[in-house]
Structure formats: C-alpha cells, structure tokens
C-alpha cells in the first residue's frame, strides 16, 4: 500500500487551492477565507494530536530514585522535543505500548470516585506500568507496596491527596 503523503506549508496550501478551484462559485476572497480557516484548523489539530500522543520512546521501567542520581524515567529534553507541537506534520508514528498519562487518575477520582479509579487501574496488570503511571502523573507512592492491589490503592490515595491539596490552597 502506498504511504500517504503528509502535506504542510506551501504544498498544503497549493493542494487546497487546487481543490477549491473545483468550486467556481466561490469568489477569490471566499477562497482565501476558506484557506485561512483550513490552515488554522489543521494547525490546531496537529497541536492537539501532539499533546495527546504518548511519548515517542517508551520510557524505561521505574526504579526509586536516589538524590543526586539522574532519574531514568524522567522524560529527557530530547524526548520532550520529539513531542513538540508544530505547524509541521508529525512524521514519527505514535509508539505502541503503555501510555502513562491515561487514564487521568485525578480526573477519574473527581468525576467518578475512588471505586471507578480503582476499576480503571485494574486494567493495568504490570507493576512497572503502574509505577510509571504514578510517576508521570506526579502521584507519589508511600511505603512498601508489595502487591498490585496495594499499588493501585496507593495511586488512588495519592490522587485524593492531590485533590485535597489543591482545595486547601484555594481557601
């Protein structure tokens, strides 16, 4: 199968211009307005897709960090740069695998409660993935957690602490 061509900038503009010429009832001014609108919509769409895309490189497994030692799971500047939004097309395919930003545990707890969050986490059955999710979502895990159930409960408790923390600051 032929790989789809991703157009951007002048080539994208020329493509739409050719396409719109098929509609002679459109005046030049109307065509320009449609082109401008399309340009804006596509730029926004690319930005949203970039924001929704999981990191291009699968992060290494989580290990507790020690002060002064580089944290292997913190996304590097290079990896973050790979996810930068741009008006240019995304050329790298999204990495398949675990997305540590989904589900958004704080949002699930706020909207549907503790049980729903635990149910959402129950679909993740790898300790490494759960720890990675907690790390990337800034949900700190306290104490010795030996089982997956304890880990999930600790993640939800951390989300609840985070919510309470924010409420307290708004008083």
């Amino acid at each position: 199968m032929r790989k789809p061509t991703i157009l951007s900038g002048a080539s994208q503009h020329a493509y739409f211009r050719r396409l719109l010429k098929a509609y002679p009832s459109l005046s030049a001014a109307e065509r320009d307005r449609v082109l401008e609108r399309l340009r804006g919509e596509i730029a926004q769409l690319r930005l949203r897709r970039a924001a929704d895309r999981p990191p291009a490189v699968a992060p290494p497994p989580t290990v507790p960090t020690t002060p002064g030692r580089p944290n292997p799971e913190r996304p590097s500047r290079r990896r973050q740069a790979a996810a930068l939004p741009s008006a240019e097309p995304a050329t790298a395919a999204p990495a398949a695998g675990f997305d540590p930003f989904s589900p958004n545990i704080v949002v699930v707890v706020r909207q549907a409660g503790r049980a729903a969050a635990l149910a959402a986490l129950a679909t993740i059955d790898s300790e490494q993935d759960l720890r990675l999710l907690a790390h990337e979502q800034r949900l700190s895990l306290n104490g010795q957690l030996s089982s997956l159930a304890e880990l999930r409960a600790a993640i939800v408790a951390a989300a609840e602490r985070r919510i309470a923390n924010r409420r307290a600051a708004a008083r």
Partner: peptide, 28 residues
C-alpha cells in the same frame, strides 16, 4: 504548550473547574 503528556493531564484536570478556550497556544 510543548505537547508533553503532563500538559494534557493538567489541562483535563483544570477543565473540570474552569472554562477553557479550545485554542491552545504553543511555544513558537
């Protein structure tokens, strides 16, 4: 915005409590 996953998390959380515009301004 830089497109990092943490931004998405935070924006989703804030959208529960505040009206957010659909426009997102990137670092350019």
């Amino acid at each position: 915005l830089t497109g990092a996953g943490h931004e998405r998390l935070l924006i989703d959380q804030l959208a529960l409590d505040h009206p957010l515009l659909r426009t997102r301004m990137p670092v350019l």
